[in-house]
């Protein structure tokens, strides 16, 4: 990881990589959504509304994956003082919050026809809403303390502490009885029939590539911002 300690070397890789991730993501998401809308069969009980899964599940995955990324980056910032870790964590926060919000909104739209309610305060839904609030708090905290070169330790500690919510979201459906069903896919089992399942991995990879592209773009923007600030300071001093 320390090869990226030099921002210029990082930018040399990130710049050409961004369009590949972005266009690859757009292509895969388009293929997955078109397949999910037109090629897969409806579900036995839910009917057509099951198709929202191809957005809802990747959004949930990236919302949780995003904070896991923030936690790892925060640890690298606190322990190894990696110069790009804080920038990476800040860059992940916005798309992470966005996908968490998409997950909550699509879940609510899905819940209305299947469960008969837009919202219920069960363990899974509540812990996911808490994740959105954590993201908003993280963004506010990181932005409020970004003037010191974008590497606030308070934000990093918050990013690490907030990670405790991720296993709570994951296991909420097992620990407590919830309206949300238990996990369909795990390492050892899968209870989604293949004819409905197959566009889902494509959507997962596609949305992940888009997520990666957004993170790289935001990292580049944050690095450029820091450079501008440094230059303005030098000009003011001169």
């Amino acid at each position: 990881m320390h090869i990226f300690a030099n921002p210029n070397r990082f930018l040399g890789i990130a710049r050409p990589l961004t369009p590949w991730l972005a266009w690859g993501g757009v292509l895969l998401v388009a293929v997955a959504l078109a397949s999910g809308l037109f090629l897969t069969p409806p579900e036995r009980l839910q009917g057509e509304s099951v198709r929202i899964m191809y957005v809802h599940v990747p959004a949930a995955w990236l919302g949780m994956g995003g904070w896991t990324g923030i936690a790892i980056a925060s640890l690298m910032q606190l322990v190894w003082r990696h110069p790009l870790a804080a920038v990476a964590a800040r860059a992940v926060a916005f798309p992470g919050a966005l996908f968490t919000a998409i997950c909550l909104v699509t879940g609510s739209i899905w819940g209305r026809p299947t469960w008969g309610t837009w919202w219920v305060w069960d363990g899974r839904l509540t812990s996911m809403l808490v994740l959105l609030f954590l993201y908003i708090a993280y963004i506010a905290l990181a932005d409020a303390s970004s003037d010191k070169g974008g590497s606030s330790r308070v934000a990093a500690i918050f990013g690490l502490v907030g990670a405790i919510n991720i296993p709570i979201i994951k296991y909420s459906v097992d620990w407590w009885n919830t309206l949300h069903q238990t996990a369909s896919i795990s390492l050892t089992k899968n209870t989604i029939d293949g004819s409905i399942l197959w566009p889902l991995p494509i959507a997962l990879i596609g949305f992940s590539l888009l997520f990666g592209a957004i993170v790289l773009m935001r990292m580049r923007a944050l690095l450029a911002e820091a450079r501008i600030e440094a230059r303005l300071k030098r000009m003011a001093d001169a």
């Binding site: 839910q46 469960w115 008969g116 309610t117 369909s184 399942l197």
Partner: peptide
């Protein structure tokens, strides 16, 4: 009020 609970199994109608 009644809410329906869906289980974790997803399958197309003809298969069921």
């Amino acid at each position: 009020n009644i809410l329906a609970k869906h289980d974790e199994r997803y399958m197309p109608p003809q298969m069921e």
